[in-house]
């Protein structure tokens, strides 16, 4: 903590999967404290509140009326983000919105305008910016070790398609499609490392798990930049075997290359699942702690929001354009970033 005597009071809206990562991070922090959770499933909210030793509510209105809640993390499905984001900000609370900021470019700008008008911190959960490897790559770029970046390849391929045909992630009306649901992570990293916003996107998608899928569970987005540079962002949830977890990060610069290969963490395992590369313990935990520490600093007006709001809006713009590219089968030009 800096000059603030008490930790920032945080409320979490929606206690599903990603909320658990935020709760774990908050337990490891002294600058912020989980004071309340809410969920449309009030019983679930009560259960989680008991485990987390905080207050549980069955509605957002009750949580926002709690004076101990100074900031809110929204962990609900994508189609709720715009409405809930505006509601949280109008209640005068700082907001960390899980990605994507909204399902549409207009929606993203609506939430951003609300935060700006009320002088509140609005961060979007592009958590990959805070991982050990992402920060190391950015440091290499900033140090000039590989010259000026001109190509980025990001591959995040997994085999765990979301369970249940009714899962909201599989419904493009609710999730925005794979470009918005997971693609924004890759788009944000690529633009951040390239040091400029993308100006075009051309996407190729496949229904790898089943032709009955409405989203492209395998998706490749090619971003073009005004400098002539480019990025290939590949995201999949349809790999086989289901245990697949393949991560590849490559930045090619004018003077060299930085690559995080699939076995970069040096732990290889032979199990019944085959040969796999394991992550180093704690690396994922540090990612969320860093993300929340950055959010707290922004809420305390000690630092700028990370990523900048313009970058979070840009990620939505690109993802929306990517979905359009998938439908139209052509390259989509992107307007100037917000």
């Amino acid at each position: 903590m800096t000059e603030h005597e008490s930790p920032l009071g945080v409320g979490i809206v929606g206690v599903g999967g990603i909320a658990l990562s935020h709760m774990a991070a908050l337990r490891a922090m002294t600058s912020a404290q989980l004071v309340a959770v809410c969920d449309v499933d009030a019983a679930r909210a009560t259960e989680v509140a008991h485990l987390q030793r905080c207050t549980g509510y069955g509605s957002l209105e009750e949580l926002l009326a709690d004076d101990e809640v100074e900031a809110v993390i929204v962990c609900t499905p994508n189609m709720t983000h715009e409405q809930l984001g505006v509601q949280v900000l109008r209640a005068g609370k700082h907001l960390l919105m899980e990605k994507p900021l909204a399902l549409t470019s207009d929606g993203a700008r609506t939430v951003a305008a609300e935060a700006t008008a009320r002088d509140l911190a609005l961060a979007v959960g592009h958590s990959h910016r805070f991982s050990d490897q992402s920060l190391a790559i950015r440091e290499l770029i900033d140090a000039g070790d590989i010259g000026t970046p001109r190509f980025v390849r990001i591959v995040m391929n997994g085999g765990w398609i979301w369970p249940g045909w009714q899962a909201w992630m599989l419904n493009p009306e609710l999730s925005g499609g794979h470009s918005l649901h997971n693609g924004v992570h890759l788009v944000d990293l690529a633009s951040w490392w390239m040091g400029e916003p993308a100006t075009s996107v051309f996407s190729v998608g496949q229904h790898a798990t089943s032709e009955a899928l409405e989203i492209h569970d395998y998706l490749v987005m090619e971003l073009g930049f005004a400098s002539g540079g480019s990025a290939v962002c590949e995201i999949s949830r349809g790999e086989r075997p289901r245990s697949t977890g393949y991560l590849e990060l490559t930045v090619v610069g004018t003077d060299g290359i930085a690559a995080r290969t699939w076995d970069a963490e040096g732990v290889l395992a032979w199990t019944d699942a085959g040969l796999t590369a394991w992550s180093v313990t704690g690396s994922a935990d540090r990612t969320f702690v860093r993300e929340l520490e950055a959010f707290v600093a922004a809420a305390r007006r000690e630092a700028d929001v990370v990523p900048p709001l313009s970058a979070a809006i840009h990620a939505v713009d690109i993802a929306v354009a990517s979905e359009e590219s998938l439908r139209a089968g052509r390259t989509i030009e992107i307007g100037a970033p917000a």
Binding site: R150, F151, V204, Q206, V220, E222, G228, S230, V232
Partner: peptide
């Protein structure tokens, strides 16, 4: 395809049989 002024080139293609091909 995209290319920088000094010739670094990237392309993403959709083959007629559906295969996605990217190269840098």
């Amino acid at each position: 395809a995209h290319a920088t002024a000094d010739g670094a080139t990237t392309f993403l293609g959709r083959a007629s049989h559906g295969i996605a091909v990217s190269a840098h």
